Simulated scan of single mutants.
Amino acid sequence: MAMAGLDNTLKEPAAVFAALAQILYSAEDSAEVYNAICSAAVELIPGCDHASLMLRRGKTNVTVAASDEIAAYADELERATGEGPCIDALETDLPQLESDLRTPNQWPEFAQKAVSETPIRGSMGFRLMVDRRKFGALNLFSDTPGAFSKDVADQAVVLTSFASVAVTALSRGEDSDSLRRGLASNREIGQAVGLLMALHRVSEDKAIDTLIRTSQEMNVKVADLARKVIVDHRSTLD
């Protein structure tokens, strides 16, 4: 299946992105958008207890949002040790996944500090692309060993790809109408397919099948969260 055929075949992912967009439309500035992405990650991704968003500013990786102090501190540990899921996601095309940091893994120093100084036991990192540049990464952390799996990562890929579009719009100073047009173009769906191909090392056809199945599973949950956010936002205006 060619990427050009996405418009006609991926209705489920499009529905998920449309619901996620409703969460961001209630935000008033970039800080609220970044925090909404982290909050959505904790609400939507199974086993995710903490989330952070790290963006590259020149040669520095800056945490622009975190769901809580634990996620923010985990980012500090990554910068201090020079290793971790977010840093690796920024440098490579592969999603980063370690389900149990207590076992030997690719980030020994970060893992040792995270396990000894925080409740974090599992982590994932996913790059954000803006105009084909590695612009940032979404960091997800679990307090439960083994909670993160490739199936869970599939759902994180969907959210990450949506976040890439939102961050792109913000980096260009675009408004919500521009974001709507970006979502309609299915750029983020193409990014999701690419991440799933890298994560599972499968063909484009297989990745598209995974994206459709994952989106079907997420759709109701995402829509419910979007409605809740909108209701909460409106109540603050009354």
Rank of each mutant, 00 (worst) to 15 (best):
I37W: 05
R79K: 12
A184R: 11
M129V: 05
R172E: 15
P119S: 07
L24H: 01
I70Y: 12
I208C: 09
G5I: 08
D131R: 09
P145V: 02
K228S: 14
L55A: 07
F126G: 04
D151A: 08
G47R: 07
S30N: 03
R181P: 02
L10C: 13
A18C: 09
F126Q: 10
L20D: 03
P85K: 05
T214E: 11
E117L: 04
A192V: 09
D209L: 13
I208T: 15
K59V: 00
E188V: 00
A184G: 03
S178K: 14
T60Y: 02
A137S: 15
L183G: 09
R227V: 10
N105V: 02
A153H: 02
G173L: 04
S171M: 15
S149H: 09
S99V: 00
L211M: 07
A192Q: 01
T103H: 01
Y25N: 11
I87N: 09
S99F: 05
E12K: 11
V229P: 04
K150M: 13
L24I: 13
D238G: 00
E78K: 09
L211C: 01
S39G: 11
G182E: 10
L179R: 05
A89W: 05
D224Y: 10
Q22V: 01
V130W: 01
T118M: 13
F110T: 11
D100H: 03
P108N: 08
A147W: 10
N61R: 03
A19P: 10
M197R: 04
L24T: 01
T9S: 15
R133D: 03
A72S: 13
L53Y: 02
G125F: 12
L53N: 04
G84D: 06
G136D: 11
M197W: 07
C38L: 02
V165K: 08
R133L: 13
T60H: 00
T168E: 13
R57L: 06
T118E: 11
D68N: 01
E204D: 05
A156F: 11
D154Q: 14
M218V: 14
D209H: 12
K221C: 03
N139C: 06
A80I: 03
A114C: 09
A4W: 10
D154Y: 06
G5Y: 07
N139D: 15
T236P: 00
M197G: 01
A31T: 10
E174H: 09
S149Y: 12
S161W: 02
G82M: 13
V193A: 04
D177H: 07
E91G: 09
G84A: 04
L159P: 13
R132A: 11
P13D: 06
T160H: 00
S142C: 15
T92H: 14
A41M: 12
V62A: 02
A80S: 14
E12F: 06
T210W: 06
R102P: 02
E188F: 03
